[in-house]
Design a protein around this nucleic acid. Sequence first.
DNA 1: GTACATTTCAAACACTTGTTTAAATATACC
DNA 2: GGTATATTTAAACAAGTGTTTGAAATGTAC
Lengths: 214, 214
Amino acid sequence: MTSKQNTQQKILDAAEKLFAETGFSATSLRQITSMAEVNLASVNYHFGSKKELIQAVLQRYLSLLMPRLDQEFTQLLASQHHNDLGKVLSVFVIPLLELNKVQNRGTTLFLQLLGRGYTDVQGHLRWFFNHHYGRTLDKFVLLVQQSCPALPASEIFWRLHFSLGTIVFTMASNEALKDIAAADFNEIVEIDGVIKRLIPYLAAGIAAPMQTAG
Amino acid sequence: MTSKQNTQQKILDAAEKLFAETGFSATSLRQITSMAEVNLASVNYHFGSKKELIQAVLQRYLSLLMPRLDQEFTQLLASQHHNDLGKVLSVFVIPLLELNKVQNRGTTLFLQLLGRGYTDVQGHLRWFFNHHYGRTLDKFVLLVQQSCPALPASEIFWRLHFSLGTIVFTMASNEALKDIAAADFNEIVEIDGVIKRLIPYLAAGIAAPMQTAG
DNA sequence: GTACATTTCAAACACTTGTTTAAATATACC
DNA sequence: GGTATATTTAAACAAGTGTTTGAAATGTAC
C-alpha cells in the first residue's frame, strides 16, 4: 500500500517539475520515470495514459485552489458594496500563494503548468477545466463586469483574455524573466513579487477607457 | 530555375500555415511536404534542416517589418516632442497590417508565428531575433521609457514583458477567440480589430500607476 | 546533342515516442 | 503458510520523427 502511493507520488512530483520546465508535449514519459526512479510502464499502470497523468498533475493544485476561489467570489458577489477591480483581482493572491503549502515552489509550478496548458495545444485540458470549474469562472467574470459597468460584455471578454495571456506568458517564462531582472536591475523578485506587480498592470488594462474613434 | 523557386515557395507557404496553426515542434516535415506537394527530402535539400526552415519562414516577414519599424522609431526619437505612449504603440499598426501585402492573411500568420516562437521552446529563435533585430528593439524600449518618465526602468522591463505575453497569447489563440466572440457576442472581428483593441489595453497597463504599498 | 549541374524522388537510416505484454516480485488476507 | 491480488519489471511493439543516400530525372549551357 505504501509503495503504491509512493510510486504515484514520485511520478506526480517528477512530472509536474518537468512539465513546468519544458511543457507537456516536449516531456517524455521516459524522462519522467527516469527522474522519478520508477519503471516506465508504471505511468500507464497507475494513471492509464499520458493525458490522464497531465490532468492528475493539474488536479492536485486545482482541487485545492478552485474551491477557495469560488468561496471568495461568492462572498464578494453577496456583499452589496461596489467591488473595486483591484480588490477583485487581489482575491487571487492569497489562495495562489497558499499553493506553496502543497509543496516547495508550489505556486510557481502551478502557474507555469497553467501556462503550459494554454500554450501547448492540449485540447483535453480546456475541456477538463471548463467541465470541472466553469461555474467558478462565471462568477469571476460577473464580478469583473460589475466592477466595470461602463464596459460592454464583449470588451470585457477580450480584455480578460488579454490578461490571461499576460499571466500565462509571464509564468511560462518566469525563470528567464527573473534571471534577466537580477542581471540587469540587481532585482531579486520572487513569485509573490511578480504577482503583486501584475495586479496594477492588469487592473489598469482591463479598466482602460474605450477607444473613442476607430 | 523557376522550379527551384517554386518548390522553395511552396514549402515556405505550407510551412508557415502549419507552423502558425499547430506550432513548430508539433508540425512534422511530412505534413509540410505533403501539403506543399513536394518530396520529403526537398526541405533538407533547399533549407538544410527544420531549424533553418523555421528561421526562413519568420525571416520572410521580419525582413520586411523590422526595417520599417526601425525607421519609425528613429523618426520618433529624433523629434523633440514628448511622445505619448499610445502614439508609440500605434507605430506598429500600419507596418503590421502591410504584411497582408506579402500574402493573404500575412499579418495574422506572422503574429501567430511570433507567438509560437515564444511558446514553443525554440532557443535558436530567440538568438536569431536578438542577433538580427536587437538594435531596433532597444530603440523601442527607449521610446517607452521617454513616454513614461515616472516609471523606473525595471518596472518598464516587467510591464513590456507582460505586454509581450498579451500579444503573443492573443495571437496564438486568435482563431479560437474570434470564434468565441462570433458565437457569444455576434461580433465579427478581424485582425486589425484585435490590434486596435489591444492598443488602449496595453497603453493603460504599461502606464499604470505604481503600487504605493507592498 | 553531348556534357555538366541542379533538382527530384523513393527508400532506408537511426532514433524517439506512448503503449502493451507477460513474467517476476511484493503485498495482503484467510 | 498458501493463495489471490497488486505492483514492478524488462522487453517488445507499432508508429512517428528528422535526416541521408544514391540513382533517376530534369534543366542549362556550349
